[in-house]
Amino acid sequence: MMSRRRPRPLNERELRLWKVGRALVLTFVTAVLVTGSVFYGLVYLLDFQEIDTTAKLDAKTLFDLVKLSFGVVAGAGALVALVGAHRRQRVDEAGAHREATRLHTERFSQAEFAARDTVLTGTPTSRCSGGSPPPRCCVWGRS
Protein backbone atom coordinates (compact mmCIF):
# COMPACT_ATOMS: atom_id res chain seq x y z
CA MET A 1 0.00 0.00 0.00
CA MET A 2 1.33 3.38 -0.95
CA SER A 3 1.79 5.99 1.76
CA ARG A 4 -0.03 9.27 1.36
CA ARG A 5 2.70 11.42 2.84
CA ARG A 6 4.13 13.98 0.48
CA PRO A 7 7.89 14.20 0.36
CA ARG A 8 9.01 17.33 2.14
CA PRO A 9 11.26 19.68 0.22
CA LEU A 10 14.73 19.44 1.72
CA ASN A 11 16.08 22.64 3.13
CA GLU A 12 19.79 23.20 2.73
CA ARG A 13 20.26 23.39 6.52
CA GLU A 14 17.65 20.77 7.46
CA LEU A 15 18.82 18.21 9.99
CA ARG A 16 18.85 14.75 8.39
CA LEU A 17 19.84 12.08 10.92
CA TRP A 18 19.49 8.34 10.82
CA LYS A 19 17.67 6.57 13.60
CA VAL A 20 19.92 5.78 16.55
CA GLY A 21 19.59 2.01 16.15
CA ARG A 22 20.60 2.10 12.51
CA ALA A 23 23.57 4.38 13.22
CA LEU A 24 24.81 2.16 16.06
CA VAL A 25 24.46 -1.06 14.06
CA LEU A 26 26.30 0.45 11.11
CA THR A 27 29.05 1.73 13.42
CA PHE A 28 29.49 -1.67 15.09
CA VAL A 29 29.53 -3.52 11.77
CA THR A 30 32.09 -1.09 10.37
CA ALA A 31 34.26 -1.46 13.48
CA VAL A 32 34.14 -5.27 13.30
CA LEU A 33 34.99 -5.26 9.58
CA VAL A 34 37.92 -2.89 10.05
CA THR A 35 39.24 -4.89 13.02
CA GLY A 36 38.95 -8.18 11.14
CA SER A 37 40.63 -6.82 8.03
CA VAL A 38 43.51 -5.39 10.08
CA PHE A 39 43.92 -8.72 11.93
CA TYR A 40 43.93 -10.81 8.77
CA GLY A 41 46.20 -8.33 7.02
CA LEU A 42 48.73 -8.64 9.84
CA VAL A 43 48.44 -12.44 9.84
CA TYR A 44 49.15 -12.44 6.12
CA LEU A 45 52.03 -9.95 6.35
CA LEU A 46 53.68 -11.80 9.24
CA ASP A 47 53.29 -15.15 7.41
CA PHE A 48 51.66 -16.81 10.42
CA GLN A 49 51.46 -20.62 10.04
CA GLU A 50 49.40 -22.11 12.89
CA ILE A 51 48.18 -21.57 16.43
CA ASP A 52 49.56 -23.80 19.18
CA THR A 53 46.61 -25.45 20.93
CA THR A 54 46.67 -26.53 24.55
CA ALA A 55 43.93 -28.41 26.31
CA LYS A 56 44.58 -26.72 29.63
CA LEU A 57 43.64 -23.12 30.42
CA ASP A 58 46.05 -21.57 32.92
CA ALA A 59 45.48 -18.48 35.08
CA LYS A 60 47.57 -16.16 32.90
CA THR A 61 45.58 -17.00 29.76
CA LEU A 62 42.29 -16.66 31.64
CA PHE A 63 43.36 -13.25 32.95
CA ASP A 64 44.29 -12.18 29.41
CA LEU A 65 40.87 -13.27 28.13
CA VAL A 66 39.13 -11.28 30.87
CA LYS A 67 41.20 -8.20 29.99
CA LEU A 68 40.36 -8.67 26.32
CA SER A 69 36.64 -8.96 27.03
CA PHE A 70 36.72 -5.80 29.16
CA GLY A 71 38.56 -4.02 26.35
CA VAL A 72 35.93 -5.07 23.80
CA VAL A 73 33.11 -3.86 26.06
CA ALA A 74 34.92 -0.55 26.66
CA GLY A 75 35.43 -0.10 22.91
CA ALA A 76 31.75 -0.75 22.26
CA GLY A 77 30.83 1.80 24.92
CA ALA A 78 33.20 4.32 23.34
CA LEU A 79 31.50 3.81 19.96
CA VAL A 80 28.08 4.42 21.51
CA ALA A 81 29.40 7.57 23.20
CA LEU A 82 30.91 8.84 19.93
CA VAL A 83 27.69 8.30 17.97
CA GLY A 84 25.67 9.99 20.73
CA ALA A 85 28.05 12.96 20.95
CA HIS A 86 28.01 13.39 17.16
CA ARG A 87 24.22 13.41 17.06
CA ARG A 88 24.01 15.84 20.00
CA GLN A 89 26.49 18.18 18.30
CA ARG A 90 24.51 18.15 15.04
CA VAL A 91 21.23 18.84 16.86
CA ASP A 92 22.81 21.69 18.86
CA GLU A 93 24.27 23.25 15.71
CA ALA A 94 20.91 23.06 13.92
CA GLY A 95 19.19 24.64 16.94
CA ALA A 96 21.75 27.46 17.06
CA HIS A 97 21.29 28.13 13.35
CA ARG A 98 17.51 28.14 13.74
CA GLU A 99 17.77 30.56 16.69
CA ALA A 100 20.12 32.90 14.77
CA THR A 101 17.73 32.92 11.81
CA ARG A 102 14.79 33.67 14.09
CA LEU A 103 16.62 36.57 15.78
CA HIS A 104 17.71 37.95 12.41
CA THR A 105 14.17 37.86 11.06
CA GLU A 106 12.75 39.34 14.25
CA ARG A 107 15.28 42.18 14.36
CA PHE A 108 14.79 43.26 10.76
CA SER A 109 11.01 42.98 10.85
CA GLN A 110 10.96 45.23 13.93
CA ALA A 111 13.28 47.70 12.19
CA GLU A 112 10.99 47.70 9.15
CA PHE A 113 7.92 48.37 11.28
CA ALA A 114 9.72 51.16 13.17
CA ALA A 115 10.77 52.80 9.89
CA ARG A 116 7.25 52.53 8.50
CA ASP A 117 5.78 54.07 11.67
CA THR A 118 8.32 56.90 11.50
CA VAL A 119 7.43 57.64 7.88
CA LEU A 120 3.70 57.55 8.60
CA THR A 121 3.81 59.92 11.60
CA GLY A 122 3.33 62.96 9.42
CA THR A 123 6.35 65.12 10.26
CA PRO A 124 8.05 66.64 7.20
CA THR A 125 11.52 65.39 8.15
CA SER A 126 10.36 61.84 8.59
CA ARG A 127 8.44 61.94 5.31
CA CYS A 128 11.52 63.23 3.50
CA SER A 129 13.72 60.48 4.89
CA GLY A 130 11.46 57.64 3.80
CA GLY A 131 11.94 55.37 0.83
CA SER A 132 9.01 56.82 -1.12
CA PRO A 133 9.25 60.03 -3.14
CA PRO A 134 8.79 63.12 -0.96
CA PRO A 135 5.42 64.79 -0.94
CA ARG A 136 5.01 68.30 -2.23
CA CYS A 137 5.48 69.86 1.21
CA CYS A 138 9.05 68.52 1.51
CA VAL A 139 10.55 70.73 -1.12
CA TRP A 140 13.52 72.53 0.37
CA GLY A 141 12.66 75.72 2.11
CA ARG A 142 8.96 74.97 2.47
CA SER A 143 7.12 73.23 5.29
Rank of each mutant, 00 (worst) to 15 (best):
T123W: 02
L68T: 06
H86W: 11
R127A: 11
T54R: 14
L46C: 12
R142Y: 14
Y40V: 14
V119Q: 15
V139K: 10
K56R: 09
H97C: 14
Q110W: 03
R13F: 09
R127S: 02
T35H: 07
F113W: 14
D64P: 10
V72Q: 07
A85S: 04
T118W: 07
E106T: 13
G122K: 01
V38T: 06
G21L: 01
G122V: 00
L15V: 05
L68S: 08
T125H: 11
V73L: 12
Y44V: 03
V38W: 04
P9I: 09
G36Q: 07
L120F: 13
S132K: 15
L103V: 12
D92I: 08
K19N: 09
A85Q: 06
F108G: 04
K19A: 03
R6W: 13
T27M: 01
D92Q: 13
G36I: 03
S37K: 04
V83C: 00
A100T: 15
R90K: 08
R107W: 00
V83F: 00
L33V: 05
T54H: 08
R142D: 10
T101I: 12
V91R: 08
M1H: 07
E93Y: 07
T125W: 06
T125I: 11
P134T: 05
S143N: 09
P134W: 00
R6M: 10
G141P: 02
P135W: 00
P133S: 06
A85G: 10
P7L: 08
S129H: 07
L68W: 04
R16L: 09
L68M: 08
L45Y: 06
L33C: 15
A81K: 02
G122T: 01
T30Q: 04
L82K: 03
L15G: 02
C137W: 06
T53V: 13
E106F: 01
A81I: 04
L45M: 02
V73Q: 05
R127P: 15
L10G: 10
F48S: 07
V72A: 01
F39H: 14
A55F: 05
R116H: 06
P7K: 15
T125C: 08
D92M: 11
L45G: 13
L82D: 03
L120N: 12
P133W: 02
G41T: 01
G130D: 00
H86Q: 10
L26N: 12
P9Q: 11
T101M: 15
L24H: 07
A96R: 13
A74W: 03
R102L: 12
A96V: 07
A81T: 05
G95L: 12
F39D: 09
R13C: 05
A78H: 05
M2T: 15
A31G: 03
V29G: 01
A115L: 14
G95E: 15
T125N: 13
R4C: 10
Y44M: 07
C128P: 05
T105I: 13
K56I: 08
C137L: 07
T121E: 14
K56Q: 09
K19V: 03
